[in-house]
Design a protein around this nucleic acid. Structure first.
Length: 194
DNA sequence: CCAACGATGGTCT
DNA sequence: GACCATCGTTGGC
């Protein structure tokens, strides 16, 4: 399978959130299938970080699609998003859960558990398992950082899967909680919550 | 099984 | 000073 290019990411957040399901997130020797996502929109979405305009934290959301937006939450965890849409709009897709595929022993060490279902079944868990931090904020997923080669290069690989998708409201929000912008592979046991 | 709660620090008002 | 796109633990049944 091949890494997805710039064009794939350049679609509206809802479309990208659905299109990412079944694709594989690859980071060095680590690989996982994306099974749960959430869309954060540039318009009429009070739950979106970008909804009140550009700030130091959310600036990557206003940048080009296919770049990472990584932020620190609850003093402890990181959340990993992929910027979508058109440059300047301010929208992104939160990666909420992966089904572990390769590099499971390393994930188990980082997560301090042997249970496969508990390695990447939540946004804070998968960033721990993959060691994604603010260092990766604003990095491109479709071309390596100038100078650093393929090290630290997060990529999304195509996968010939057309999963059945279930939609629901997003998790953990106080604003915009009624919008059905969470998507997951129907019945998958690695999603954060049915 | 599940609901409640505390940890912990960056960001924004 | 309040809030937060979370998670592991605790204590109930």
């Amino acid at each position: 399978m091949k890494p997805l290019g710039k064009k794939f990411f350049n679609q509206p957040a809802v479309d990208l959130a659905k299109a990412l399901l079944g694709k594989q997130l690859v980071f060095g020797k680590l690989k996982g299938t994306i099974v749960e996502t959430e869309a954060y929109l540039y318009k009429d979405d009070p739950g979106c970080h970008a909804s009140r305009g550009i700030t130091a934290r959310n600036a990557p959301m206003f940048g080009p699609a296919g770049h990472a937006y990584v932020y620190f939450i609850y003093g402890m965890y990181h959340c990993f998003n992929i910027v979508s849409g058109k440059t300047g709009e301010g929208e992104a897709v939160l990666i909420r859960a992966l089904e572990p595929v390769d590099g499971i022993p390393l994930m188990q060490r980082r997560r301090k558990t042997a249970k496969i279902e508990n390695l990447c079944s939540g946004p804070g868990k998968l960033t721990q398992a993959f060691a994604i931090t603010r260092k990766h904020n604003n990095m491109s997923l479709f071309e390596p950082q100038p100078g650093s080669g393929t090290a630290n290069f997060l990529q999304v690989y195509d996968n010939k899967i057309k999963p059945e998708i279930t939609a629901s409201t997003r998790i953990g929000l106080s604003a915009g909680k009624e919008l059905e912008l969470r998507f997951f592979i129907t019945g998958n046991r690695f999603v954060s919550k049915q």
